[in-house]
């Protein structure tokens, strides 16, 4: 079984949202994903990294970790921040829930991650940070998950 892994750490600034998307797309390309699968992965990672920047480090400076590993056709991605954490993960994952209603946030980030990936787990502790684990089976043999 083919295996590979990568670890990235970058400043929690919005300029790095597109960087994170490009980085994960380049890594996932090794699995020969379909165009739709690659778009799904980029969108889900964009949501997780944006959450880390907006919510994890609301009023402070920090770093975001983007780790990924390939095991056969399975891609597992971790997006980690060491920010404020989420008090109620269950509530945060509810569709349209947002803590920033005045900033035109749609509250759909977790919903998008759930829809576009095959698996999502969220681990969070107040004042310590949040880890989002995304998983997707990629490549010709997997369920293509078309549009």
């Amino acid at each position: 079984m083919f295996k590979n892994k990568m670890f990235l750490k970058f400043d929690a600034i919005s300029q790095n949202e597109s960087f994170a998307r490009m980085a994960i797309a380049a890594f996932a390309a090794q699995l020969n994903p379909t165009i739709n699968q690659l778009a799904d992965i980029k969108t889900a990672v964009s949501e997780a990294v944006t959450n880390a920047i907006i919510h994890g480090y609301k009023d402070s400076f920090g770093e975001v970790e983007l780790n990924a590993k390939i095991e056969g056709q399975k891609l597992t991605i971790e997006v980690i921040d060491y920010g404020v954490g989420i008090e109620n993960v269950h509530k945060a994952r509810e569709p349209f829930y947002t803590t920033c209603p005045d900033e035109e946030r749609s509250g759909m980030g977790f919903m998008v991650m759930e829809s576009f990936m095959d698996g999502i787990e969220v681990y969070s502790e107040v004042s310590k940070g949040t880890k989002v684990v995304l998983q997707k089976n990629v490549g010709a043999k997997s369920n293509a998950g078309g549009v």
């Binding site: 980029k42 946030r105 749609s106 759909m108 998008v112």
Partner: peptide, 13 residues
Amino acid sequence: TFMDSSGIGVLLG
């Protein structure tokens, strides 16, 4: 070429 839920917020607004 790319849009995520931040774009949904912009369109909805």
